[in-house]
Design a binder for these strands. Structure first.
Length: 588
RNA sequence: GGGCGUGUGGCCCAGCCAGGACAGGGCGUCUGGCUUCGAACCAGACGAUCGGGGGUUCGAAUCCCCCCACGCCCGCCA
């Protein structure tokens, strides 16, 4: 999606270049990078926003044309500007600065947003193609820690982003409900557990058992052998093993569902690893037929040495399956079921090699969908500079974070807005806003150091700041109390603040697109911060005497024009927050 | 040892892929702004050898090379 303001500017500049340098444009085009087909698109791609906005709205640096035109950038700028309307284009040193007319912009942008509403920024480029997104995917029988939030928040946001662009998003929670850790849990439970204790506080109890097992395992390595033995029994359908596994799984699922309900997150499928148990042999057979399976130290592997990777382990020496085996089965299942255009795996970067291996195996099988598999990786959440580890018991429960944030939000509301109805509900929205934004406000590849101070901060570049701005906009709409009319006097839009808002509003669609291209919801988070900042500045601007210029005043025409802008900002902010999975309260 | 990632004011982060005008925000600190359109806000101040070195370029936080620090992964865990 192109920015129409930028496009118009590029077109005018291109015409001016042609007029100023007749006959030399061919030489210039020769030097263009291959991605720029013509002069217009070249200029379009080179346009930047001046650092000092007083200079203009767009700037074209003339350096890039200097070599082929054999002139100094400063002279080029002057010559080109001479061909253009003087009040809209100026040469500042080697830069050609363009200034847009605010009423024109308003006429273009505001009726569009008013008409499209929440659909503003939507596209159909997805053509309903299926994007399968694997996210959250916690290991059951373990508590839901803040570490799991990363995948959950990013994946859920990508789900909505792709849907907005016209793709058919399919959300899969690939629950970690199979594997040797269940052998461990079974051993631990049989040794130290009992049903009565389990029923009281299941997740906490299972978690304690898990930590205890790992502590004991360090002292007594026979426990590891027992665990493998019990996992093998589980795979072979041993009734006692299966009974305990189901017990753990059911308790865990109920627990996770509670968390997802709080977060307002749903999945289309909850197909965990165990779902693929009866599909493993088909995959193994396929791999064997392709001649990819070799034996190494008793285990069955795919040798990836020629590709600079460690071997991909398919089956242990005792015949039990492994992570990669189930992953492969999952990929085939997803392809056969959905015929996906892309399959995303929103999983931490620690598993980068695992996915490289698995994807390589698919490629070696000659499957046509090998290049549609994407590992959307992200950095770790650490606590006090340590990796959060369930095994070591160094973990913070997401629910504790939510509860603490809710308490703080409620306290602030009681203090600032004591008459607010449904306090608990709003406090929860604010808490979620703070927590989710703490994750989505940072580029995903960065490791995040969990800090209570940061998560509980509701000021500055935070989720509650965005929510507050949304509530403020909503308050204006309530106060205005009438339907917004799109037939306003656009010539009343003149201020730099209004221009900034219009420019920024228009960029929403491009931002969503960038976020999808890079699998990075953070672009939307940053966009919204900027939008809120620009609006709040507009909201609190003062006249020459230092008096606040109010949006709603007795001047009818001005008020109506500004309210059309207010509505547009609210629409985009609301929609942007939705894409991030952050609730947008009307009051707080 | 190999692979991947990160390193930007006291703290957190954007900018790097597609190199350009004095390196942008936020937190914290200091100053100013509510006789009510919501101060979870706004305005201003202080604060940076962009990890280090070399190279390419008219121009490097950004591209290339080397080095340093930290994190993660490297066969029967997931």
């Amino acid at each position: 999606m192109k920015n129409i303001f930028q496009e118009n500017t590029a077109r005018l500049l291109a015409e001016a270049f042609r007029a100023a340098y007749p006959g030399q444009i061919e030489a210039l085009i020769q030097t263009l990078p291959s991605n720029a087909a013509d002069l217009e698109s070249f200029i379009y791609s080179r346009l930047e926003v001046p650092k000092d906005r007083k200079l203009g709205d767009f700037a074209f640096p003339a350096f890039s044309a200097a070599a082929s035109l054999k002139e100094k950038p400063v002279e080029i700028a002057q010559k080109v500007v001479a061909q253009l309307t003087p009040d809209r284009f100026t040469a500042t040193g080697p830069y050609i600065n363009a200034t847009l007319a605010v009423p024109d912009m308003a006429r273009m942008v505001l009726p569009m947003i008013h008409g499209q509403g929440a659909a503003f920024g939507s596209q159909t480029i997805g053509q309903d193609r299926k994007i399968v997104i694997d996210y959250s995917s916690p290991n059951i029988a373990k508590p839901f820690g803040v570490g799991h939030l990363r995948s959950t928040a990013i994946g859920h946001s990508l789900y909505r982003i792709f849907a907005k662009l016209g793709y058919c998003s399919i959300g899969i929670n690939h629950l970690g409900d199979w594997g040797t850790q269940f052998g461990k849990m079974i051993v631990a439970y049989r040794k130290w557990g009992n049903d009565a204790e389990l029923a009281k506080e299941p997740i906490k109890y299972l978690y304690d058992l898990y930590v205890r097992f790992h502590q004991q395992e360090e002292l007594d390595s026979s426990l590891s052998d027992d665990a493998r033995l019990w996992f093998k029994k589980l795979e072979d359908g041993d009734p006692e093993a299966v009974r305990l596994w189901k017990l753990f799984r059911d308790y865990s699922q109920a627990e996770f569902q509670r968390i997802y309900d709080i977060l307002g997150i749903k999945f289309d499928y909850y197909t965990g690893e165990s779902f693929y148990n009866d599909r493993i042999e088909v995959v193994m057979e396929r791999l064997r037929r392709a001649g990819l399976v070799t034996e190494s130290q008793g285990a069955q592997v795919v040798d990836l040495e020629p590709y600079g990777m460690p071997a991909c382990l398919l089956k242990k020496a005792d015949g039990a399956t492994l992570y990669a085996t189930r992953e492969l089965a999952g990929i085939f299942y997803r392809y056969e079921t959905f015929d996906f255009y892309r399959a995303l795996y929103v999983v931490g970067s620690a598993q980068q090699e695992h996915f490289k291996q698995v994807f390589k195996v698919i490629e070696l099988l000659g499957e046509p969908f090998a290049d549609r598999l994407v590992h959307v990786e992200f950095g770790w959440i650490r606590f006090k500079d340590q990796a959060m580890s369930t095994r070591k018991g160094n973990i913070i429960f997401l629910e504790d974070v939510i509860t603490t944030a809710e308490e703080k939000a409620a306290q602030i509301i009681r203090d600032k807005n004591p008459d607010l109805p449904n306090l608990d509900q709003t406090a929860r929205m604010v808490a979620l806003g703070a927590i989710l934004f703490a994750d989505l406000g940072v580029k995903k590849h960065k490791d995040v150091n969990f800090s209570w101070e940061e998560v509980l901060n509701f000021e500055g570049e935070t989720g509650p700041y965005l929510q507050y701005t949304h509530a403020r906009l909503s308050a204006l709409m309530r106060r205005f109390g009438k339907p917004i009319d799109e037939t306003v006097d656009f010539n009343l839009f003149t201020s730099p603040e209004e221009k900034e808002l219009l420019l920024h509003l228009y960029r929403f669609g491009q931002t969503v697109e960038t976020a999808s291209d890079r699998y990075e919801p953070n672009y939307i988070a940053e966009y919204l911060l900027e939008l809120a900042v620009v609006f709040n500045r507009f909201y609190q601007r003062k006249d020459a005497h230092g008096k606040l210029i109010k949006i709603i005043s007795e001047r009818k025409n001005e008020t109506e024009a500004r309210m059309l802008l207010v509505e547009a900002v609210r629409t985009v902010l609301n929609e942007g927050l939705r894409l991030l999975g952050i609730p947008a309260p009307e009051e707080m």
